[in-house]
Design a protein around this nucleic acid. Structure first.
Lengths: 343, 343
DNA sequence: TTGTATGCGTTATCAC
DNA sequence: GTGATAACGCATACAA
């Protein structure tokens, strides 16, 4: 029974209800003697204050929430862990909420924020669209967008963000392949209708790199992973199979995520190809798994730790009245064992 | 500003506060005309009821929480996703909480449960120790343990559980290697002092298989992954390096998780060994990544989907007054490309 | 069918 | 130093 409340504690320790509250919250004066007396009772009965009542009274909770679109994305794992630790170290509990594919992450965040009186929130994943100024105003709670931004369509003082320059990094990765002598470069991405996500931006970077190098863009080389299979290994595997069939002369593949890249690599290996001898593969994200794959995968490494730390730090700052900021982190191309110099 | 409340809505729609509440909760009678009128105002002002107040009043929330020890364990990913979907499909929001390494998951759950008036909870990961009857009684909320149990030290009507038989599966995996002709079998596990976790049970199964087959247990072949490095790929990598140095004649390795197995495989590959020609590797869990590794990894596949579904189903049953249950699922040894028949 | 009044467990403002 | 007591926003028994 968790039915024991502050009134019970007050009665049991023979003091007033306000005194118990003071002991609990270390606010106001209370003599050492009564403090000890009350604490004893609290410990004895294992009393834990009810947060709902507390939050209701304070019209604000001490809860920070993390909304994650696609919580099973391995790239998010590390960031989730760090965010959790950082938030905890600042004395707040972290509520993690998965946002399912069909929900709008900001709408969901607004709803949850109002319902739970959140004091701050981080949105990770998601898309660049659907973020309107009205929504941020309605939210009215410090908010940090992680890995996405609003593309400048919203007053930037309404939220903070931590991102990378997806278009630029996609451009760089493609350029790297081109510099290594590749011309027939496949691209694996996730097709989401009418929604701007990081992978679309990376795709744009891919296109730009080709065009700047006067390499014709070939539709056949571009493979949207089948949405129904999701964004996992299997999607990369299937997409790569089709890609190889359509393009026997393809020498390299750029996948918009490491997970997709690993699926693609497996498909190539299964087809009897060697990596990188027969086909080069580069992924994106820099998840640990890419490092331990066989062969070790080249990838565009996003500084996940730094990004997560920045996000929490920005949020904490905003909660203390500091200004919003928009941080764009640099990625690094990890040149390892899966891209071969041609000729 | 989320400062708009039920009283405002009542005033704005020219009705009483109770009527708004009735409209909101679809309880009691309310004429279609006023219902519509109220709904219009609600939509217009984007009113969202305050959950803290609601939960406080109801002395119970509609929140189900999932406590995960080591949320970054890839094996948990899929289960988290399914649990989230299942819980949502039953109309409850799911709060996911990571339990950090140093916290006792049950203590944490008790505290959170009381603070938030949870109506049900699932604990995933964690250890077999520390679960006492007193704690479950204090919890007083439907609770399902997933992947661990209390080892019979607690009245089984106080909670439900969904597990596999870790000792037996560890035994089977080892036996499989022995049947394939291996005798020098390394074991990779995570050493946690004085705590019984699934990996200790798998270790016991390993020992039993050796003993039953009259294979001497060799301390040199047993490698605890360094705790400070964690349970990730890197830990498996490092542990395997030491293992290979100490045992040049080792022909097979059984890792207590796929993640550890992948790290170990990479270490073997880096040392110039072929898998499975020079050394066989088998993991545990059956994460998707094992299937897409190169080579495809043999593993003890845990029915993650089934386990997650069962957990939610049991919890839901308990919330409706049904009895507790203790489900032990069967694992399957996936025989793929990383174990070789010796001679 | 609708409105009023009470209490859920806290915190904080007062008096004492 | 301490103890009543009024909110916080909502659901509901009860009266109308």
């Amino acid at each position: 029974m968790g039915n024991i409340n502050i009134k019970d504690i007050a009665k049991l320790s023979g003091v007033g209800i306000a005194t118990v509250s003071r002991v609990l919250n270390q606010t106001g004066y209370v003599s050492e003697k009564t403090r000890k007396k009350v604490m004893d009772v609290i410990n004895q009965y294992n009393y834990i204050p009810n947060n709902n009542a507390r939050n209701l009274k304070l019209t604000q909770s001490e809860n920070i929430a993390l909304f994650v679109k696609y919580i099973s994305n391995p790239f998010f794992e590390k960031m989730i862990e760090i965010i959790q630790q950082e938030v905890a170290s600042r004395g707040y509990p972290l509520l993690i909420q998965n946002v399912d594919e069909n929900s709008d992450e900001l709408d969901f965040a607004i709803s949850e924020s109002m319902q739970r009186n959140l004091c701050g929130l981080i949105i990770m994943g998601g898309s660049y669209s659907s973020y309107t100024e009205a929504k941020f105003r309605q939210l009215g709670t410090p908010c940090v967008l992680l890995t996405v931004n609003s593309k400048g369509s919203v007053d930037p003082t309404l939220y903070s963000s931590v991102t990378i320059n997806d278009e630029l990094e996609g451009y760089r990765a493609t350029n790297y392949l081109i510099e290594m002598g590749h011309r027939k470069i496949g691209f694996l991405y996730k097709d989401v209708e009418n929604v701007v996500t990081p992978n679309i931006l990376r795709y744009q970077g891919y296109i730009r790199a080709l065009e700047e190098n006067k390499i014709p863009v070939d539709e056949k080389l571009i493979a949207p992973a089948i949405p129904s299979i999701g964004m996992g290994f299997r999607a990369g595997f299937q997409a790569m199979k089709g890609l190889m069939q359509r393009n026997p002369d393809m020498t390299a593949v750029f996948a918009f995520s490491d997970v997709l890249a690993i699926g693609a690599a497996k498909a190539a290996l299964n087809a009897g190809k060697q990596i990188p001898e027969d086909i080069s593969v580069i992924g994106f994200d820099g998840i640990e798994m890419a490092e331990f794959y066989n062969p070790t995968l080249d990838t565009v490494y996003q500084p996940a730790t730094e990004m997560a730390l920045s996000a929490v730090s920005l949020l904490h700052g905003m909660m203390n009245g500091e200004r919003t900021q928009h941080i764009v982190c640099d990625s690094v191309i990890m040149k390892r064992g899966s891209v071969k110099m041609l000729r």
